[in-house]
């Protein structure tokens, strides 16, 4: 029997513990493609979250009605419906933003993050849990896209959300807004995230050993200088 976790935990795990980009390595195409600027990243992440939350909710509600053999096809149809809504709303309300995101709004359909959460979580849990899980994953995705978008925008054009923040003498690094910059930024960020996790794990292990030693009065191992 799986231990039931609190709803808050269901939400917060998406932020870091199972972060869609850093930990699950899902949804890489939009992460790399649209993060030329922070605003693009935010728009993309919001559209993805919209589709993720609503499709998770619907899938979770009808999870007992779908025969297992055709579940993937049914998920895709549900997701495609919400993506169409998101695409048409973006086109009508924010034509410029929609143009700069290009085919990536329609491509949310094949974002593995959404199908991945549907298959791994929404199809096995109650609607309320699915709602919190998808909100958490969406927020995690938003944070990562915003960070990458900001880094690329600051270094690549010297602005953030359209405001100039770098000194006038700053020469923008053209590479950051080119495709190569996207790969390098994400690769380095992912490496840093792994480094931080390893570092924290090592520290925890050391502190546990330390506690054990001081409480049990074990003989400490002599280390050679």
């Amino acid at each position: 029997m799986k231990k039931q976790v609190t709803l808050l935990k269901e939400y917060t795990k998406g932020l870091w513990e199972i972060n869609p980009v850093f930990k699950q390595v899902l949804g890489m195409c939009p992460t790399l493609a649209v993060t030329v600027s922070a605003i693009n990243g935010i728009a993309m992440a919001l559209a993805t979250t919209f589709v993720l939350v609503l499709s998770s909710l619907i899938i979770s509600i009808i999870r007992k009605l779908i025969p297992p053999q055709v579940r993937i096809a049914s998920y895709i149809v549900i997701i495609a419906t919400f993506v169409t809504i998101a695409d048409l709303v973006m086109k009508a309300q924010f034509p410029e933003l929609s143009k700069s995101l290009g085919p990536f709004i329609p491509l949310i359909v094949v974002n593995c993050l959404i199908l991945g959460r549907a298959e791994a979580f929404a199809s096995k849990n109650t609607p309320v849990r699915a709602l919190f899980d998808s909100l958490g994953n969406g927020t995690g995705f938003l944070i990562v896209l915003f960070i990458i978008g900001s880094i690329r925008e600051i270094l690549g054009s010297g602005t953030i959300l359209g405001f100039h923040i770098m000194p006038l003498t700053f020469e923008p690094w053209l590479i950051m807004i080119l495709p190569a910059g996207a790969f390098l930024t994400l690769g380095l960020l992912m490496g840093l995230a792994n480094f931080y996790v390893d570092h924290k794990k090592n520290k925890e292990r050391e502190s546990i050993i330390e506690k054990f030693r001081s409480s049990k009065q074990l003989p400490t191992i002599e280390t050679e200088a």
Partner: peptide, 23 residues
Amino acid sequence: VPKPFRGAPITLIVAGLLALAFM
């Protein structure tokens, strides 16, 4: 490869260099 960079991160960095070449 340094341990934190093994797997996906180093692949992305290599892809970045490949993208540079394709530029």
